[in-house]
Design a protein around this nucleic acid. Structure first.
Lengths: 120, 120
DNA sequence: TGCAAGTATAGACCATGCTCTTATGTTGTG
DNA sequence: CACAACATAAGAGCATGGTCTATACTTGCA
C-alpha cells in the first residue's frame, strides 16, 4: 500500500509517517520494476509497527526505545538471546514505571484524604 | 534559603530551578527589608514541590499538569471541591497509565514467548 | 487532454523541557 | 579592600517529536 492508505489505516498523518521513516522506525520499499516514480510501498508489518509506536509512545517510551523494541520484534539483526534481552529490559522498565505510578497514586490519595478532612 | 542551597537540597540544578520559576511552578520571595539585592528566598514547601516535580515528571506528567497538581496541593486558589476534582482527575489518569502499561507488558511477554519457542 | 489527487524531497517552524553563556551586581572572608 | 562565591536577568542553543509549506513530479479519471 502507499502512504495515503497507510495513514488512513493507522490514523497517523502522512507527515508523521514520513517523520518516522526518516527516523528509521519504519521502511517502505520501492518497486524496482516501476521506473516512472519512486513511491514507497508499505506492508502489513508496517501497520503493526505504527500501532506499536502509538501504544508505546503513550506509555512513555521514546522513539529510540521503540526502535530497539521493533528491531527485536521484526528484524533478524539480533540473535534470539539478544532479542530476549531487549524484551526483558523493556519488561523491567515497565514494571519500574508501574511501581512509580503506584507510589504517586498513594501520595495523591493520601493528600486527597487530608483535603477532605480539612473541610470538616 | 537561597537558590544555591535549594539546589543542593533537591539535587536540581540552579538553571533548572530558575526555569521552573520562570514557568510558574515555584515562587521565591524577595525580602522587602533588604534593598541592596533582589535575591529570591525559598521555603520548605519549595523543597517539597521540587521533589514532587521530579517524581511526577518521571512518571510522565507534563510540567503543566504538575502545576495544576501543585495548585491543588499548596495554594488556596482552589475551593476544596475543586482541589478534589483535580486530584481525582490525576488519579484517574494514573490508573489509565497503569492499565496501558499492563497491556504493553502482556504484549511484550507474549512476543517473548514466541521468540523463545521459535528457538526450539 | 486536463485536472484533481497523490507522492517525494527539503527545509522552516513549533512546543516542551531543559542547559548554558554573557553580563552585571552582591556578599562574605582573609 | 581584594577576590571568590554567590546572585540576578536576558537570551542563545539543543534534543525530542512532531507539523506544515513549498516545489515539483506522477497517476487516474472524466
Amino acid at each position: 500500500m502507499l502512504i495515503h492508505e497507510l495513514s488512513k489505516r493507522t490514523g497517523i498523518t502522512i507527515h508523521t509517517i514520513r517523520f518516522y521513516e526518516k527516523s528509521g522506525l519504519i521502511q517502505g520499499k520501492r518497486d524496482a520494476h516501476v521506473k516512472s516514480n519512486n513511491y514507497f510501498h508499505y506492508d502489513e508489518d508496517t501497520v503493526e509497527k505504527l500501532a506499536l509506536i502509538r501504544d508505546a509512545k503513550s506509555i512513555g517510551f521514546t522513539l529510540r526505545e521503540i526502535g530497539q523494541l521493533m528491531d527485536a520484534w521484526f528484524t533478524n539483526q539480533l540473535s534470539i538471546p539478544e532479542k530476549i534481552a531487549v524484551l526483558d529490559e523493556k519488561l523491567e522498565s515497565i514494571d519500574e514505571k508501574i511501581k512509580q505510578l503506584m507510589e504517586m497514586k498513594a501520595t495523591i490519595s493520601e493528600f486527597k484524604k487530608r483535603v477532605e478532612t480539612e473541610s470538616c
